[in-house]
């Protein structure tokens, strides 16, 4: 009797992994090309921008909040970075881009703290407003034109490497991502600051009563999210070699979806970056498999929404059954 409960529990807790395996097997049977080296590289390449944005979002959601401003951050950082390559060189542009993203995240955090926004709903709409501010600045900055790397006079080898480089069978962007993941997971699991994020998501009142400054933690999670959105943006412009002022559109839903599908609870307090990676993998595989099977893009949009709704639903049921 106890054993069956355990099996059920394990299955419920590893639903994503199960989904990934089932998806791979089904696609591999129907379309053997799925298992080729080229497709493997292709999947790794798609890991780029979304995985970074989702990783940053993970810690905001663990902290019990949400951030819709990644759309604006990705758009703005992309166009600013690309436009800075000519005046200050590629390394400087890269650095400035990351700095700008960090600053935008910090700004979000400070504004939320100053206004005293403490619930997910309040935060949702204020960050939506921030997102339209950032997006509008990107549009005004570029006069709504797409910038192209090929028109630059300075070299942009770093960006080419991030976008297209390979070390062994792995793409450069995935290696950068793994490094970032290890650092941030170490930070989240082993440092006091990191543990405070989980504490804040778990119980704000308890955390405050324990003497932790939740305002600083709130600013911290948004700063992390901004930095990661900036990294995602740089990976994106490196990959497509252009920067559009509306490039970020849709990333907020995808990022939230990856986090939630991965199994990080929206209520906050539990979850990890590694779970998010599984979530991202599932979403990328889903689109890759559907492309391979020749499913129309419209159906893919439907599937995306459906996966999000079902994932949250199952997540909720799981919570109720375990407790």
């Amino acid at each position: 009797m106890e054993k069956t409960i355990n099996v059920k529990k394990i299955v419920l807790q590893n639903l994503v992994l199960l989904g990934i395996i089932v998806l791979c097997i089904v696609t591999a049977i129907v379309e053997p090309l799925f298992l080729t080296q080229d497709n493997f590289t292709n999947i790794l390449r798609q890991f780029g921008p979304l995985s970074f944005a989702a990783l940053g979002m993970t810690y905001v959601i663990i902290g019990g909040f949400i951030d819709l401003s990644v759309v604006g951050t990705i758009s703005l950082v992309g166009v600013v970075t690309l436009s800075l390559i000519d005046p200050i060189g590629q390394a400087g542009a890269l650095f400035c881009g990351l700095l700008l993203g960090t600053f935008l995240g910090f700004l979000n955090g400070v504004i939320l703290v100053k206004f005293g926004a403490m619930t997910q709903a309040e935060v949702l709409f204020i960050t939506y407003g921030m997102s339209s501010i950032f997006g509008a600045i990107a549009l005004i900055y570029t006069n709504s034109e797409t910038e192209h790397m090929s028109r630059l006079s300075n070299p942009y080898t770093i960006f080419t490497f991030i976008g297209n480089g390979k070390i062994g069978p792995f793409t450069a962007s995935i290696i950068l991502f793994v490094i970032a993941l290890i650092i941030i997971e170490w930070f989240y699991r082993k440092t006091l600051w990191g543990r405070q994020i989980a504490l804040m998501g778990g119980n704000k009142t308890a955390a405050t009563l324990c003497g932790y400054n939740m305002k600083k933690t709130l600013v911290l999670v948004y700063t992390i999210c901004g930095l990661f959105a900036a990294m995602g943006s740089i990976v994106l412009i490196s990959r497509v070699t252009t920067a559009s002022p509306v490039a970020g559109a849709g990333y907020e839903t995808d990022a939230i979806m990856s986090v939630v599908v991965g199994g990080t609870a929206l209520a906050g307090g539990t979850g990890s970056g590694i779970r998010t990676v599984l979530g991202v993998l599932l979403i990328i595989l889903l689109s890759n498999c559907m492309n391979m099977l020749g499913v129309s893009t419209y159906l893919q949009t439907i599937m995306k929404g459906l996966v999000l709704v079902i994932a949250i639903w199952l997540d909720n049921r799981k919570e109720q059954q375990i407790h």
């Binding site: 839903t253 159906l299 893919q300 949250i312």
Partner: peptide, 30 residues
């Protein structure tokens, strides 16, 4: 989903919005 299954309303409805958009695209061929 929100009332009986007690899911978070804004994220569920956000996902539903994406789903409905897809259905509209499918019906009109965009």
């Amino acid at each position: 989903l929100v009332v009986h299954q007690r899911t978070e309303p804004f994220i569920i409805t956000l996902g539903m919005g994406t789903l409905l958009k897809g259905i509209s695209q499918l019906l009109t061929d965009a």
